[in-house]
Simulated scan of single mutants.
Amino acid sequence: MNYAIVNIKGMQFKLFEKKYVYVPYLSQDLGKKISIKKVLLFYKNGIAKIGTPILEKISVQIEILNHLKGKKIIIFKKKRRKGYKIKNGFRPIFSKIKVISFLEE
């Protein structure tokens, strides 16, 4: 099975062809097809190509399917014996993407 390890917003993701992945929010419109050029590793037919640090001639074509919120993350701060307690939280926004194909030049 072919796969690529790419860098999206400072995080590394292992992408398989025709599979779905949740990544940090991408500010593109829904249904838009974009190309990711920061490919760190590409594996095809038993042969792995490793970039130093990225592969120049390989890109990954993806489609943005959905934007959604994740589960709530609770941030709780406390200092003992001081009466200081703060409870905050937020829900991070993710983008659901589908890998269309890997392009080799």
Rank of each mutant, 00 (worst) to 15 (best):
N2V: 06
A4I: 05
A4T: 03
N7F: 02
N7K: 09
K9A: 06
K9Q: 08
G10D: 01
M11V: 10
M11Q: 11
Q12N: 11
F13E: 01
F13R: 02
K14T: 09
K14G: 06
L15E: 00
F16Y: 10
K19C: 05
K19S: 07
Y20S: 08
Y20W: 05
Y20D: 10
Y20E: 11
V21E: 12
V21G: 07
Y22W: 05
Y22G: 03
Y22S: 11
Y22A: 11
V23Y: 01
V23E: 00
Y25R: 02
Y25G: 01
Y25W: 04
Y25M: 03
Y25F: 07
S27R: 05
S27K: 08
S27V: 02
S27Y: 00
S27N: 12
Q28N: 15
D29N: 14
L30D: 04
G31R: 11
G31N: 09
G31K: 10
K32F: 12
K33I: 15
K33S: 12
K33N: 11
I34E: 13
I34P: 03
S35R: 13
K37M: 11
K38S: 10
K38Q: 09
K38L: 07
V39M: 12
V39R: 02
L40K: 10
L40P: 02
L40G: 04
F42K: 03
Y43R: 12
G46C: 11
I47V: 15
I47S: 14
I47K: 15
A48N: 13
A48T: 15
A48F: 15
A48Y: 14
K49L: 14
K49D: 13
K49E: 15
I50P: 08
I50A: 12
T52I: 09
T52M: 11
T52W: 04
P53R: 09
P53N: 02
P53T: 01
I54G: 13
I54V: 15
L55N: 08
L55R: 08
E56L: 14
K57A: 14
K57M: 13
I58C: 11
S59I: 10
S59N: 15
V60N: 15
Q61G: 13
Q61R: 14
E63R: 14
E63N: 14
I64Y: 02
N66G: 02
H67K: 01
H67Q: 00
K69V: 06
K69F: 15
K69R: 13
G70Y: 01
G70E: 11
G70Q: 03
K71C: 04
K71S: 08
K71N: 13
K71V: 04
K71M: 05
K72P: 03
K72S: 10
K72L: 09
I75A: 10
F76P: 04
K77P: 02
R80M: 02
R81N: 10
R81L: 06
K82L: 00
Y84Q: 05
Y84S: 03
K85L: 09
I86R: 08
K87F: 06
K87I: 07
N88L: 10
N88K: 13
G89H: 04
G89M: 07
G89D: 08
G89R: 07
F90Q: 02
F90K: 05
P92G: 00
F94P: 00
F94A: 01
S95E: 00
K96C: 09
K96H: 03
K98P: 03
K98E: 10
K98S: 09
V99F: 09
V99L: 07
V99H: 05
V99K: 03
F102I: 09
F102W: 12
F102G: 02
L103A: 10
L103G: 06
E105I: 08
